[in-house]
Design a binder for these strands. Structure first.
Lengths: 185, 185
DNA sequence: GGATGACTTGGACGACTGCCCAAGTCAAGT
DNA sequence: ACTTGACTTGGGCAGTCGTCCAAGTCATCC
């Protein structure tokens, strides 16, 4: 029974999760060792295993936190504009300004797919994206399958992460919007 | 100056590259240690650094081999059918039957993006995809930007790798084909 | 103010990593 | 036959990884 800790253990955990996200975004998932994470958080390494039973336990929470962050921040950016064009521009802006976040998202998905207990979390991540896309489609008033929208956005994002061609990415999104514009209500 | 080796050094290198691809597809890029690769190839570990100066040198060739394999095999599958629908079905079949290959492709792209000297190889990989898509579009006779086609395919692939929903993947591709079918010649 | 227990500390552990080396093997050239 | 040099071998190196532990600190409760 904890009496009254000087600082909530949950706070420590959250600090570590955020530090892990920072390290992963900067240097990749592979570089996120327990030492790198605790150093980033300004703690001694030993504290890590006081907050988390294992590194796997931290990664579980990291993936969950990632899903929440990504979806809400992208949605907030996209929701600001009313029509399709401004929504697409908003997404591209978010991508160009936070490339590490998007790249980290892909890396974590790959990691989750390889890790037995985390595969379902990856599915959960994509369900969030699908719901978000469906919501945006509803706001914008277009009738296109959410899966297709998410697929296009992810595919374009992947391309941009490789070639950093802002104009091409936006143009590709536009040409997609143009086509489903013919089917919109 | 090599006089006449009992076995070509290039053969050894190729064996290692293929062994590396097998290990990576099965257990992930992270699991592809020099020991795991040489064991897979049936050699002693010491031979590794006789064939390659470093692990990075091997990975460079692995990425190149990956690009070649992937593009040619997908193209061969897709080229067999004449119309859009059968091309899409061919791709889905290739995906469902060789999931590890596609997943490995994403992992290697991520790895390349994080590795200074390999970033340009990732760009080269995507250029191959774009050319392949453009070729298929020409064969099929559709007028859609190659970038958009690649984006959709990659996005749908990513989704399938997460949820393994064959029907949804195919349906998403169909709904995309349906839309650009209105613009085809 | 002493006991309790939550929390911290620095150092260690065994396992694994990429890489290297001295000694060996053996086909080809002389 | 003997030298040469390409190739192999098993073991070892230093570094990093996740995890653990005994000893310490210090706010809280009796």
């Amino acid at each position: 029974m904890p009496t009254r800790p000087r600082r909530s253990s949950d706070d420590r955990r959250r600090e570590l999760v955020e530090a892990a996200l920072r390290v992963m975004a900067r240097d990749g998932v592979g570089a996120a060792t327990t030492r790198a994470i605790t150093t980033e958080a300004g703690m001694t390494q030993s504290r890590f295993h006081y907050c988390f039973r294992s590194k796997a336990e931290l990664l579980h929470e990291v993936v969950q936190a990632m899903v929440g962050n990504q979806v809400t921040s992208v949605l907030a950016a996209v929701r600001s504009g009313g029509d399709v064009g401004s929504a697409l521009r908003a997404y591209c802006q978010h991508l160009v300004e936070n490339p590490e976040q998007h790249q980290l998202s892909y890396e974590l998905t790959q990691y989750a797919l390889r890790t037995p207990g985390l595969a379902e979390l990856a599915a959960q991540q994509y369900e969030s994206y699908l719901n978000g896309a469906a919501e945006v489609m509803a706001v914008v008033g277009a009738r296109v399958p959410a899966r297709l929208v998410v697929a296009v956005i992810e595919g374009v994002t992947l391309q941009w992460l490789v070639d950093h061609d802002d104009a091409a990415a936006l143009a590709t999104l536009y040409s997609f919007a143009e086509q489903f514009g013919q089917r919109a209500a």
